[in-house]
Amino acid sequence: MYEFIKNIDRRWIFLLMFLSVSIPILLQLQFPEKATDLAYSTFDIIESLEPGSNVLLSFDFDPASEGELGPMATTFSYHCAAKGLKMYYMALWPVGPQMIDDRIDMVIHSDFPDMVYGEDYVNLGFKSGNEGVIKVIVTDFRELYTTDAYGTAFDDIPMCQDIYSVQDMDLVINVSAGYAGTKEWVQYAVTPFPDKIKMVAGCTGVQAPLLYPYIPDQLPGLLGAIKGAAEYEMLVGERYGLQDQPKYLEGIRRMGPQLVAHLLMIFLIIVGNVIFFMDKKKEGQS
């Protein structure tokens, strides 16, 4: 047994991980969530906006990270729509527009059919240039965005006529999986205009530790990975009665497999250390 574990083929570990994720999914294992301060502050900032306020939603992620970021993007969209905020969607990643289309379809078309494109929400689409795009639109939207994602002239879209720059937004919501993303938004939009641009964000687990230095001055709200999404879903769900709508509980659902996977990791680390100390002991004896 000792020899087997010591020289274990990593495919056994892969199998364990597969089981620890798939069994909770099949059994629909769910656990209650307790919101942390950052989730509360993200929720409160959006909740405190007046209906009709302008919100820029920059979805800077791709299908690869959709599993981690999709649920919070959906809930952000729902929260903004339920509050009656004007939503300006954009993306710094080439496949971001597809992420936006999915949210519009899933949230607005299905639950808010009375919302009118161009008056209540608009999809400005993708622009290449990463942080270069942010640097330009913080002072002038029209320099880069002459049309929306479907080719309608920017000035012909009613809700865009009074928008000159990101500074005209009451809030920026960024969902990001890496570069260009939250860090660039903080550095090139919030930092130069601290009094005019306010931002909350959602990011992947690996990114979250890097964004803590910006909390709370430059980034008052942050949702880190599925855990952050689940906490936020819980708060939005409680406020708007979404407890029976599975599509707004994806984050909470995904926390089940995550818990078991984390326990497996702890188990593996302990086993690895037991082997390590047994080896040391044997070396000492010999």
């Binding site: 274990i8 990593r10 570990i13 892969f14 497996l264 680390i269 690895g272």
Partner: peptide, 11 residues
């Protein structure tokens, strides 16, 4: 991540 944690995390 699981396989790297098993191998690399040693006290």
């Amino acid at each position: 991540v699981a396989s790297a944690a098993f191998r690399a995390f040693r006290a």
